[in-house]
Nucleic acid binder design. Structure first.
Length: 257
DNA sequence: ATGGCTTTAAAATAAAGA
């Protein structure tokens, strides 16, 4: 059973690429980030035609997340990350689907840093830590996946020097990510590719894609009950090279059962 | 190169991304 995550950078601009990716890779569950549309224009019927039922949490212009499942409707558990009544940004959606708890997130980018956006990112990561502790305590198979906007280690960026001032690579961001993992989560792609050099994002600028200058910021974190079923994990890298591609490639994990 | 692209919203530029 394949569980996938894809920052699509705009539903409207990406729809043909997104539909062909679903048809070609047929994930059981597909979590999308940056749908960048209000709830009333999300093209759910296009996914229905391919046999996917969806729930989504959008907003105008920016952010937005969705969970698609092959042949069954995800049962929504949480819309929005708890812990801040003032937070209006659509970045978190949690559901029960295919016998798993699935939490789909679009973590704040945090640039420029330092500044209020970076403060928001770090506060958001503390709230996520709280929620992931609750999820861990349930002791059921759980996958917390999405665009974390954190490159955890030197081996996860094409150039640590070039990335040094970027919010996705600051020590504060990496420390916060490590604190999440320390609760007992398994970073699926890192576990199966311990030497690093696996990218999930290539900037549109400066020829980063043709030169393969990327970073790894999209992650799939497995609770112990899900990690016991880990078979494979990977990146659909070729999809980054297509016409009108997102700047992220899809990432996925294969679970037994 | 505090941006070399791309998307969104909206009607020319501006914000956001990472």
């Amino acid at each position: 059973m394949r569980i996938a995550s894809f920052n699509i950078n705009g539903t409207k601009a990406r729809l043909p690429r997104l539909l062909e990716w679903l048809e070609e890779t047929r994930p059981a569950v597909a979590c999308l980030q940056e749908i960048k549309c209000p709830d009333d224009v999300f093209p759910a019927e296009e996914f229905e035609k391919l046999g996917y039922k969806a729930i989504w949490h959008g907003q105008k212009s920016f952010n937005g997340v969705a969970i698609l499942a092959d042949g069954e409707a995800p049962v929504e558990v949480l819309r929005g990350l708890p812990g801040d009544e003032e937070d209006e940004q659509a970045r978190y959606l949690e559901a029960d689907v295919k016998g798993l708890r699935v939490a789909n997130l679009y973590l704040p980018n945090g640039n420029p840093q330092p500044g209020p956006k970076f403060d928001y990112k770090l506060a958001w990561m503390e709230r996520l830590h709280q929620r992931m502790q609750e999820l861990m305590a349930r002791e059921v198979p759980t996958v917390v996946l999405g665009d974390y906007n954190v490159a955890p280690d030197d081996k996860d960026v094409w150039s640590p020097r070039a990335m040094a001032q970027d919010a996705v690579f600051r020590p504060e961001s990496r420390d916060a990510y490590r604190r999440l993992l320390n609760e007992g989560w398994t970073d699926a792609i890192d576990t199966l590719n311990p030497r690093g050099g696996v990218w999930t994002f290539w900037d549109y600028q400066a020829g980063c894609w043709p030169r393969d200058l990327g970073i790894r910021i999209d992650h799939l974190l497995l609770s112990p009950e899900a990690a016991d079923r880990l078979v494979a994990a990977g990146v659909d890298k070729a999809h980054r090279g297509r016409e009108k591609a997102s700047d992220h490639a899809p990432v996925w994990v294969e679970l037994a059962g």
